[in-house]
Design a protein around this nucleic acid. Structure first.
Length: 195
DNA sequence: TGATTGATGAGCT
DNA sequence: GCTCATCAATCAG
């Protein structure tokens, strides 16, 4: 499977968020590939988005958001980790949060990483997918467009525009009204619908 | 099946 | 000290 080019991420983060649906997230552990298809994303805009970690100012934690596109931003929230992809040009801190995956390969491995391991609950949430794929802070600032990385994003399945659903974001306290969450219609691995 | 709630720890002020 | 882009257990119906 072909790894994406950096140019893919050097665009408006909102376009990247939509186009990432259907792509494959590949985690390599001891030479074995663990693969999930991206079925749900959220976009965090540069400068104007109060919900973005980069909003207030650049800090040691958020510095990677201001760096090269195509790199990972892994942060901890409560007890868990979440995975973002840095987009746009240097010093333009747009990013895309990977919210849920459809398990493709290495499902037994994912189950062994999670306490309650039924297939549907494996990767349908940002904290859950990081547990399943063993994504932690050591993978912060990883180059996701290099074949040499142990975490990368490759070409996957084509998703037609008509299969993409747009809603508001989940779990945030600011700018809740912005329609920046995208997921694949009718996919059973999308995280819980918002009410 | 859906809504509510408590546990939880890092990062920032 | 307070915030928070979460999860899983719990409870009501």
């Amino acid at each position: 499977m072909l790894t994406l080019k950096q140019e893919f991420f050097k665009r408006e983060s909102i376009s990247v968020a939509k186009d990432l649906l259907g792509k494959y997230l590949v985690r390599e552990i001891d030479g074995v590939n663990i693969i999930g298809k991206i079925v749900e994303t959220e976009c965090y805009l540069p400068f104007i988005d109060p919900a973005a970690h980069s909003f207030i100012r650049k800090t040691p934690r958020t510095a990677v958001l201001f760096g090269e596109a195509g790199y990972s931003y892994v942060y901890s929230i409560h007890k868990y980790f979440c995975l973002n992809v840095v987009c746009e040009a240097i010093n333009i801190p747009g990013s895309v949060l990977i919210r849920s995956l459809e398990p493709i390969q290495g499902i037994d491995f994912m189950i062994s990483n999670r306490l309650k391991g039924n297939k549907r609950n494996l990767t349908n949430g940002p904290g859950k997918l990081c547990q399943a794929l063993q994504i932690n802070k050591k993978l912060n600032s990883t180059n996701l467009v290099s074949d040499l990385s142990e975490l990368k994003i490759t070409e996957g399945d084509f998703v037609p525009e008509t299969q993409i659903v747009t809603t508001t974001r989940i779990g945030i306290s600011k700018a809740q009204e912005l329609p920046l969450r995208f997921y694949i219609k009718d996919n059973e691995f999308v995280s819980k619908l918002k009410k």
